[in-house]
Every structure is written in structure tokens, then in C-alpha cells.
Nucleic acid binder design. Structure first.
Lengths: 122, 122
DNA sequence: ACCTTGATCAACCAGATGGTTGACAACGAG
DNA sequence: CTCGTTGTCAACCATCTGGTTGATCAAGGT
């Protein structure tokens, strides 16, 4: 439905799903094993898994009656790449703003902070 | 309402909000400036900003009639810390599994560098 | 004093989400 | 073959979400 990045963020926005991911990072598990700690029905867990699966975070095999769930850790990269890009951009901008303020504070008193005239507005 | 981590992931699960964050990484902006590229009402954008604000991703000042929006890039750390933790855990597990397979395939090799010793798995 | 501009609040609506219960499909064991 | 185990599908329900429109507030500009 939505782009994968949206699905990834949405999938991890739920504490239960985050906990499932955390446990799957340790070991693969069946649906029943995953459901056991939570106080919800097996069907609810199955739905959560469907969300994780369609986000690409998880794959399911089949062994006997059980459907072992496996974490696909590499898709995390999509999120970290996105985050780091804009985090870094904001960081750099902050550094530049700092430099501007330094330049303004240098020749003056040093306590001035109320006139951050912004030249390039869009 | 929910824990901040959930709010952060949920906030970034929307493409419009991700785009706003991307633009705020470049420069602060007013609500009107933020709304301009999108084909939605100003009120809708205001709602998006409320989501970003309650997640801690942005702060709003006040200058004249406008309400400049500022990105708080440091809260990204909460997400990256979470992601990297489990990504790394899954990665290490994968390495261990690899080592076990290697040991089964060629026990005479000796190039094993990981520690396949798995103790008590709870 | 009066409008104009920028933004929020309030009420409402359609659709998504997370949960439930009940039925049933797939498989292995007896 | 029949039964128990494991899990999914389907329908239903309450709440959340993202959008709308209309009213309102806050601060200048004239």
C-alpha cells in the first residue's frame, strides 16, 4: 500500500511489535512462542506479524504445523539511512548558525542573542 | 499518551510529515511556508505539526504573527539507538549461525573467528 | 479603531488500526 | 480415518487518524 519507509516506521510505532522484533533479534520463533508473553489472542499476534511481514521486517517459513518467523535485519538500513541524512543536515545547519552567531558576538559585548537576522528565507 | 519511541516512529510513518522534517532540516519555517507545497489545508498541516511536536521532533517559537517551527534533530538518537541495538543483535546471531554451518561443512579449515559457544538460551 | 494575515480550535466524516470471537485449513500422531 | 495442534481467514467493534469546513484568536498595518 504505502511506501516501504512508511510501512517500516508504522510497524515499529507499536510497542508490542517492537518487542516482537526485539525477541526475534535473539532467535527465530513460531507464532505461538511469540504470542505467549502477551495478553492477547493468537489472532492479534498473527495480525501484528502480517504488518511486520508486509513492511519487509520479517519472513515466514513453514516447518510441520509451525510457521517459524525470521527477522530480516537488513531492512533497518532504510530507516537509519533516512534518519541519518536529515539528522546530519540539521546538525550542519546548526554548526553554520553557530558560526554566524559567533561572528556577531565577536566584535560586540557577547551577551547579545535577540537579533538573529536570517538572510536567506526560502 | 504513548511512549516517546512509539510517537517518534508514528510521526515519521507519514510521508507528508517526513517531507516536512526533511525541509525543516534545511531551515526553520512558518506553518504557512510548510503548508505551501502540499495540496491540503493549513489546518491539516497544523495537525501534522502537533504530532511532530508531541513526539518531540519540533519546537515552535513565536515571532510576530508567525510561529516558526524548529527541528530538534537530537531526538533522532532515540530511534537510531533502538534500531542499531537490535540490528546488531540480529547481525551477531547471523554470524554465529554462519560459523556453525562452516563447522559442519569443513571442520578441518580452522578459519573460524566467531565464538559459536551458545550457553543458556533462557 | 478597523481590517488583514497567520495560525489554532472545534465539530464532523471516511478510512485505517488493534482487538475480539468463531469457523476452518493444514499437518502429524493415534 | 479421526483427532489435536498450529495458525489463518472473516466478520465485527471501538478507537485513532488525516482530512475537511467554519469560527475564533493574536498581532500588525493602515
Amino acid at each position: 500500500m504505502a511506501d516501504q519507509l512508511s510501512q517500516l516506521f508504522a510497524a515499529l510505532a507499536d510497542p508490542t511489535r517492537r518487542d516482537m522484533v526485539a525477541r526475534l533479534a535473539v532467535a527465530d520463533a513460531t507464532v505461538g512462542q511469540l504470542a505467549e508473553p502477551y495478553d492477547v489472542s493468537l489472532q492479534a499476534v498473527s495480525k501484528h506479524l502480517k504488518v511486520l511481514e508486509s513492511a519487509g521486517l520479517v519472513t515466514r517459513g513453514r516447518a510441520a504445523q509451525t510457521r517459524p518467523v525470521h527477522l530480516e535485519a537488513k531492512v533497518f538500513d532504510l530507516m537509519t539511512k533516512w534518519i541519518e541524512r536529515y539528522q546530519q543536515q540539521a546538525e550542519e545547519r546548526y554548526q553554520r548558525l553557530d558560526a554566524v552567531l559567533d561572528a556577531m558576538n565577536g566584535p560586540a559585548d557577547g551577551t547579545v542573542q535577540t537579533d538573529p537576522q536570517e538572510g536567506t528565507a526560502s
